[in-house]
């Protein structure tokens, strides 16, 4: 691994430095420019004011003063001249920002906002642990993990390799339901509740977002156990695949164990397409005939 020759002891990152197109409004003459993709490290889905200011400073000093926002919490500083790259990375590093999250590896883990009132089960801590364990792990192709604290899925868990969704079980006491009140029906985003002939939740349709329970003032619907739903094998790129359920209700330990198992299997089972590139997880699962077959395969 290349070590920096200037500044403090510093190992140059293997990912997060991306070849880029030189735009016209920058004066880095006769030099290659790169895009630097950074994120907070240790893991956070927030940036502090100081980190924003450091990114601003680095973008001005070494880039073109612009910053692109990625969909995975990364801030990208485009057009950094390669002769000053090490210094730029060191200044970012000093503020708790590291380059990463590109190439054929585990990309930056996305977790939705911790303060969102819709969250069923908090995901930031779990995201941090998954990042600690698996972040930047080299794999046959890119690998995305996203965590959503509720089934509204702002983190887009259905179109990533591993999606983790905070869900609740619901406890229904129809006898407590007050006639004429329709609060739960109005709160339900997926039309899973019927009141005709008594309060009933259609379990096929229910996604476990708990909004009915929060709307019910009679405690006719209450939240029971909370945990995580784990779905795998989604992607969006030149083709789309929606993730399939692996676990319906898991705790944090089971999630970590499962993600570890999926990554091991993927590493082992991914084949080259008929050219140079390896399959994404979605393709492996599809080739093997589904999530169950994938999880039962020998040799992981």
């Amino acid at each position: 691994m290349a070590e920096a020759e200037e500044g403090f002891r510093f190992e140059l990152p293997k990912v997060g430095i991306i070849k880029g197109v030189k735009a016209q409004d920058i004066e880095v003459v006769g030099e290659k420019v790169v895009n630097v993709r950074v994120r907070a490290k240790p893991y956070s889905n927030m940036y502090t004011a100081e980190q924003l200011e450091r990114v601003a400073e680095v973008a001005e000093k070494y880039g073109s003063g612009k910053v692109h926002l990625s969909p995975r919490h990364n801030l990208e500083i485009p057009e950094v001249g390669s002769s000053r790259l090490t210094r730029a990375l060191q200044e970012l590093f000093a503020a708790g920002l590291q380059a990463g999250g590109s190439g054929t590896s585990v990309r930056n883990i996305f977790t939705c906002a911790e303060y969102c009132p819709n969250r069923v089960k908090s995901v930031r801590e779990l995201g941090a642990i998954l990042s600690e364990l698996f972040g930047d792990t080299p794999l046959p192709n890119k690998f995305t993990i996203s965590l959503s604290a509720c089934p509204a899925g702002c983190a887009r868990p259905w179109n990533v390799d591993v999606g983790i969704i905070g869900v609740a079980e619901l406890e229904v006491a129809p006898e407590r339901c007050r006639e004429g009140c329709t609060a739960c029906v109005e709160a339900c985003p997926v039309d899973a509740i019927s009141l005709e002939g008594g309060l009933r939740i259609d379990e096929e349709r229910c996604v476990g977002c708990a909004r009915c329970a929060w709307a019910c003032e009679q405690e006719a619907i209450k939240t029971g156990k909370r945990g995580f739903r784990v779905v795998i094998g989604g992607k969006e790129g030149n083709t789309v695949a929606f993730a399939r359920e692996l676990l319906g209700m898991a705790d944090d330990y089971q999630v970590i164990e499962t993600v570890d198992g999926v990554i091991r299997r993927y590493r082992k089972l991914a084949r080259k397409r008929d050219g140079k590139k390896y399959e994404r997880l979605a393709e492996v699962i599809q080739r093997m005939g589904g999530v169950e077959a994938f999880m039962q395969a020998e040799g992981s």
């Binding site: 004011a49 924003l52 400073e57 001005e60 612009k66 910053v67 692109h68 926002l69």
Partner: peptide, 13 residues
Amino acid sequence: AELTSEQLRVLAR
């Protein structure tokens, strides 16, 4: 689709 360094500073502030 992108922020300027000045905008980042304002957000920080």
